[in-house]
Computed example of a mutant assay.
Amino acid sequence: MTAIDVSGMIDAVGARLRALRMRHDFTLTELSERTGISVSTLSRLEAGERRASLDLLLPIATVFDVGLDALVGVETSRDPRVHGTPITRHGRTWVALSRHGDGPTAFKVTVPAAPAKHRVEQRVHAGFDWFFVLSGRVRLALGDDEHIIEAGEAVEFDTLIPHGTASAGSGPAEILHLMSRDGERVHLRDV
């Protein structure tokens, strides 16, 4: 077993923080407003002039919706399996199939049956959505158009177009859904 270089890990937090902030297109002022940490403290932390502490890292990790391990560079597990916990929102069950990171997140989504005449609720948000129908049939409302997507078919669309889905059959449908962090916030949280 190798010794952990804690000092080196703490020293590298600044570079990780700056990279994470830049990927999310935040200014120091915006991050300060969201965390309650002063701009000068954040700047010194990124520059390596201030040591990272738990009271600084926790609000930052919360804003970026990442674990502390992402900020300090600790590998939490060598087990490649993803153990997603089902989340039910608006009648749909979402199970994460990938670990949360900066890129797209994969989910298996169970879309419940809906009456055939049921109007599909549509939303708009930044990003792109992609899904593959694993089983069943899915009604995709995309602006003024509606499409029936069959098992084995995939779709991709700009999420600035009003969009929504419902099961097109008498039973639920299952889809493999890839989305960005923006899409995840819209779909899994009441924003």
Rank of each mutant, 00 (worst) to 15 (best):
L71G: 06
V133W: 11
V111Y: 07
W94Y: 15
L56Y: 06
R119T: 13
F132A: 08
S98H: 03
T110M: 07
E46P: 13
F131Q: 04
V133P: 07
V82H: 05
T62F: 00
L42P: 03
L140D: 08
D69Y: 01
V82E: 02
R92M: 15
P112S: 05
G48W: 05
V63Q: 00
A141N: 07
A47P: 09
H83M: 10
F132V: 05
E75N: 14
E75T: 15
S135L: 05
R78P: 06
D144K: 12
D145M: 12
R99L: 01
D79Q: 11
H83G: 12
I60V: 15
T105K: 01
T85Q: 14
A106V: 01
T105H: 06
V72L: 12
R123V: 12
T93D: 10
E46L: 13
V138H: 09
V72R: 07
L42Q: 05
L140R: 05
H83V: 03
F107G: 00
L54E: 04
E49R: 15
L71E: 02
A126T: 08
L142K: 00
P112V: 08
P115L: 05
I60H: 01
L57W: 03
P115S: 10
D102I: 12
V82P: 03
L142S: 06
P86I: 01
P104W: 04
G73L: 07
L97F: 09
V109G: 04
T76E: 14
F64V: 07
D69F: 02
P112A: 06
A52R: 10
K117L: 11
G103T: 10
A106C: 04
L140S: 09
S43C: 05
D69K: 06
R99G: 12
R44Y: 12
E46F: 08
R78L: 13
S98K: 01
E121K: 11
R137W: 03
G143K: 02
G101P: 04
A47L: 13
L134A: 13
G48S: 11
R99E: 08
S77A: 15
R81S: 12
H125P: 05
V124H: 09
G127D: 06
V74N: 09
F132C: 09
V111N: 03
H118D: 13
G73Y: 02
G101W: 00
L58H: 02
V133Q: 10
T76N: 13
G67A: 14
T62H: 01
P86K: 02
V72Q: 05
T76I: 13
L142M: 05
A70S: 14
P59T: 00
R51K: 15
T85S: 13
G84L: 01
F107Y: 14
R119P: 06
D144G: 12
E46Q: 15
A52F: 04
H147K: 08
E75R: 15
E146G: 03
F107M: 00
D144A: 14
D65V: 07
F107I: 00
V111K: 01
S98W: 02
P115V: 03
